[in-house]
Write a protein that binds this DNA or RNA. Structure first.
Lengths: 177, 177
DNA sequence: ACAGCCATGTAACTTGTTACATGATTTT
DNA sequence: AAAATCATGTAACAAGTTACATGGCTGT
């Protein structure tokens, strides 16, 4: 949440609740609504680190709001981060770990797990397709839906690989641990 | 780390340091070595929750080791988890978020970022291919390498989508924020 | 009057990450 | 004798998650 908040604040200053709304609007297609508390937590940390600066802005007839803006330091940190290449990912996908562990633990039949999970991914693909048909998606939403879709397709392909491995070599593979 | 440790302990009881070695052996191809401290932290938490049970096992001539085994509760929890389908993933991949934010922030040219990241992914693919040529990989290693490879290929495809979107519609897209 | 949204925050907890401390055993 | 590995842990910190508390404003 650090960098998302910095990036949103680089567009214009905003208060906590507003950030939540902007974030949910932009990323809601592929991310569940973010907990507001986390926004405030993160803003506190960012302010502690001098990356953002908050100030009370009195409202007429409403309690004043705390509006945050990027500091110079924050702007630099954001830009440095944006320009860095990201490390290639390590696999943290829960299901991948689960399936491998199921195979290791030997308790549950991996093929059954695979079939169930495939249904789940099909469902996700359908939902993404539905979202994609919406004509007033903006660029970022389209790209995020594309990313999610490609990712799930990759997982589906992996399920096929695994199924093949688990069924074909079941009999051949008697060479212990 | 909770479930990986439970799964490894379901094979046979082990002490902390041993778990680190087993884990690194099995997942080392796609995961950086895990910090031993985390193993011990996690074991403490698991013992607190009655999922594992540790006992001192005196060694002849060495200081005794604390060997952990699954409790019944731990075995049940592991099996339940293995049988649950996992939620379809939300996108947490750093670079995806970064590229979208770069586009939003408007500070850095997304196309440049894409090119740099593509090199990074190519490098990762080459490294995975090298790993894959090793003939004595076991089943789980092969599958993990396959998963990592499919994932990066999906990311590369996504980069192409993004590049297209950012270059094609650059001129057409003059309809404000 | 009441529900629901606007708005800000705190507290407790979990997980992961790093660094540090300690000491024994094994290998060179 | 020194270095590497075996072995166990603690402390501090960062980040994410949830739940809770508080109160004002808005629409029905």
């Amino acid at each position: 949440m650090r960098y998302p908040i910095l990036a949103l604040l680089s567009e214009k200053p905003a208060h906590g609740y507003e950030l939540k709304q902007i974030f949910d609007n932009r990323f809601g297609a592929v991310w569940p609504p973010i907990n507001v508390g986390q926004i405030y937590n993160t803003l506190s940390a960012l302010e502690r680190d001098d990356l953002v600066q908050g100030k009370e802005v009195p409202q007429r007839g409403s309690p004043s709001r705390r509006v945050y803006e990027l500091t110079e330091k924050g702007r630099v940190e954001l830009e440095e981060w944006l320009e860095e290449t990201s490390d290639s990912p390590t696999l943290k996908e829960e299901f991948i770990i689960k399936l491998i562990l199921a195979y290791i633990a030997g308790a549950t039949d991996p093929v059954i797990i695979i079939d169930l999970q495939r249904q789940e991914y099909f469902k996700a693909i359908r939902e993404l397709n539905d979202l994609a048909t919406n004509k007033d998606n903006d660029t970022t939403t389209r790209l995020l839906i594309g990313a999610a879709s490609l990712y799930i397709q990759a997982l589906l392909k992996w399920l096929d690989q695994c199924e093949e491995e688990f069924t074909d070599h079941q009999s051949t593979d008697s060479t212990g641990t």
